[in-house]
């Protein structure tokens, strides 16, 4: 604004400044539009979840609720069994999967980074190869279901995401910033390799652990795909898959309505679906501002490595 006034006062604007102003107008407009487009679906979702059922049936989902109502949330919180159970499953696989995955990943990354480990490049290629070639979902499915008998087993939700080769490479980059002399001198002092890793390396790579841990946690929390493949028992549905199956069929809704012992018509199915989506996404939106910087860091480290 001040710039504009200054320019008007001068009467004529220098060429470079005018062009730069044009650039700024374009860039602020494009970024603002992009940001709005990123937020709009959330806004429509939240608005729909707070809209009165009859108003939705009549006017559809709006950008602002045509008639405000808490009914969907009231019913969800009145009969929260299935959601609480799904939350429990999601938290369970996220905590266990992240803990094991993070430990195994960082331990392996450390070995791959040890200069005196002769096979470290072969080991790295052993992992990297799986990103170039894989047997596809069909063989994995048959292997899990027929040979490992994992149908309806929680392990089928944890195993497929337990080691991610990209995270392994990023973790190795984090660890490689620790001077080799630390491991070497500890070794001379008689420390074992595992003790060096646990007592010296892990504490020094906290930012790396936080970053990779969050990547794993996000993958587990957002997973519905493995549940769709391997889980048929609704009591073992993780949150995202419960949401998906609710959206797919009216069955889950009718189960809630049976518990509520009300006629199905009076259950706000249209807003209930959206309210469930809000409840499933809520935790991520809440922690997002505080964890975002770790993801930026992880991607930056990964990008430098290529």
């Amino acid at each position: 604004m001040e710039n504009k006034l200054a320019i008007e006062r001068k009467g004529r604007l220098p060429k470079t400044e005018g062009v730069n102003l044009l650039f700024n107008v374009i860039s602020y407009t494009v970024v603002t539009v992009a940001a709005i487009l990123c937020l709009l679906p959330f806004e429509i979702l939240i608005s729909g979840s707070f809209t009165d059922e009859k108003a939705i049936a009549l006017h559809g989902y709006g950008i602002i609720p045509s008639k405000f109502s808490f009914e969907a949330y009231r019913i969800l919180f009145k009969f929260p069994e299935s959601i609480i159970r799904a939350y429990g499953v999601s938290i369970f696989i996220t905590v266990i999967g992240t803990a094991i995955g993070l430990f195994v990943t960082s331990m392996t990354a450390y070995v791959m980074n040890r200069k005196d480990f002769k096979y470290r490049n072969k080991l790295a290629f052993f992992f990297y190869f799986t990103t170039l070639f894989n047997g596809g979902i069909l063989s994995t499915y048959i292997f899990f279901v027929k040979y490992l008998q994992l149908k309806n087993d929680m392990l089928s939700l944890i195993l497929p995401l337990l080691i991610n080769v990209f995270y392994l490479i990023v973790m190795r980059t984090f660890i490689s910033s620790i001077p080799d002399s630390i491991s070497e001198s500890a070794k001379i002092d008689g420390a074992g390799d595992f003790a060096i890793f646990m007592k010296l390396i892990l504490p020094l790579t906290k930012p790396g652990l936080a970053t990779i841990g969050l990547f794993y946690a996000l993958d587990y929390w957002n997973d519905w795909y493995n549940a769709m493949l391997y889980i048929t028992d609704p009591d073992k549905y993780p949150l995202q898959y419960l949401l998906f199956s609710t959206l797919q069929s009216a069955e889950a809704i009718s189960r809630i309505s049976k518990m509520a012992s009300v006629v199905a018509i009076s259950v706000p199915t249209l807003s209930l679906k959206l309210a469930m989506a809000v409840i499933a996404t809520g935790p991520i939106i809440l922690v997002y501002p505080s964890v975002q910087k770790y993801f930026v860091k992880g991607l930056t480290v990964g990008a430098i490595k290529g």
Binding site: L39, P41, W221, N222, W224, Y241, L243, L274, A280, F295
Partner: peptide, 27 residues
């Protein structure tokens, strides 16, 4: 804000699509 969608599962995107484009009640 622009980074946020990366954190959202595809399931939620499925809800968005239903929410915006379904014939009877879509936005």
């Amino acid at each position: 804000v622009i980074f946020l969608p990366f954190f959202i599962s595809w399931t939620i995107v499925g809800v968005f699509v239903y929410n915006i484009f379904n014939y009877e009640t879509g936005t």
